[in-house]
């Protein structure tokens, strides 16, 4: 039986987008009762979306035999980002990030939808014929992207909180924002986890690419550029003790680079 799963992918993206809206609206509830209710709804909506997405990926793998590794790459990335957020949210209350994270997952889900699952040179099928180096590359890149996504979200929120504090805008919802020190700490942890994983992904990816066409693509160069920025930020933070807005900006820029690389695969 031939089932078209593409609409289900866009359905997943819509669910994540809706969860993002619920997260954002939950930040502007006036009283405790309303706040608790909307907090519950936003949390449950993300859990449902993640459950739906996992099920969809399994169905897709079973149905297509894993044709189109890029779709799997983005699908897994979306899942990894969502799960990482849920894990962090259990330890540190960063609910205000839920909106940004859900939007990011929705974006990855759209990328995933864009890839129709057609077998191609850049998107081989996930079966026994798929090179081990590529599988390792995808696994490392997915994990690295999840860590960097968390790191970038923290940086974005850091800049928002810092701007509010600077401009003396203590508007409603501020109470629910985490402190600058918490955001900075999680940002650093994200970098510490993501950087080695992404480095591994780049090394394995390079080995795979040079073993094939041997060409240096633009995406590869952008990836390398992002990696350099991450390396620089990490080095500055660990040795020179860099903190605050500058580190947050650079982390964001590096992540945008990674997203551009991801988008270039998606819309190719």
């Amino acid at each position: 039986m031939n089932i078209d799963l593409d609409p289900w992918f866009i359905g997943g993206a819509t669910l994540f987008a809706m969860s993002g809206v619920l997260h954002l609206s939950s930040m502007w509830r006036g009283n405790d009762a309303g706040e608790e209710r909307s907090k519950w709804w936003s949390k449950i909506s993300l859990d449902i979306s993640l459950g739906y997405w996992s099920l969809l990926l399994v169905c897709w793998l079973l149905h297509t035999g894993g044709q189109g590794a890029s779709r799997l790459w983005f699908g897994l990335s979306a899942l990894a980002v969502g799960l990482s957020y849920r894990l962090i949210d259990r330890r540190v209350k960063v609910r205000s990030l839920g909106g940004v994270i859900s939007a990011l997952i929705a974006l990855l889900a759209v990328f995933s939808y864009q890839l129709s699952g057609e077998p191609s040179l850049t998107a081989p099928s996930v079966d026994s014929s798929m090179p081990t180096t590529l599988i390792i590359h995808i696994a490392l890149a997915v994990a690295g992207l999840a860590a960097f996504a968390v790191s970038a979200s923290m940086s974005g929120l850091y800049l928002v909180v810092a701007k509010r504090l600077k401009s003396k805008q203590l508007v409603m919802g501020s109470k629910r924002l985490p402190s600058l020190s918490t955001l900075d700490e999680i940002n650093l942890k994200g970098l510490l986890i993501g950087f080695p994983l992404y480095t591994g992904a780049l090394l394995v990816g390079s080995a795979y690419a040079f073993g094939g066409s041997g060409e240096l693509s633009l995406s590869y160069l952008v990836s390398l550029g992002s990696w350099s920025i991450y390396g620089g930020v990490l080095q500055a933070r660990l040795t020179a003790g860099w903190r605050g807005q500058r580190a947050a900006w650079l982390t964001l820029i590096a992540f945008i680079g990674i997203l551009l690389v991801a988008a270039s695969y998606s819309f190719r």
Binding site: N31, K175, L177, P178, S179, L180
Partner: peptide, 25 residues
Amino acid sequence: NQTGISKHVVSVSSIAVRLARHIFE
């Protein structure tokens, strides 16, 4: 529980501490 009547701190010293908590956890 059902109104925000006690949510917003109003003494200058409490506000200073609340602001500090936005920066340092």
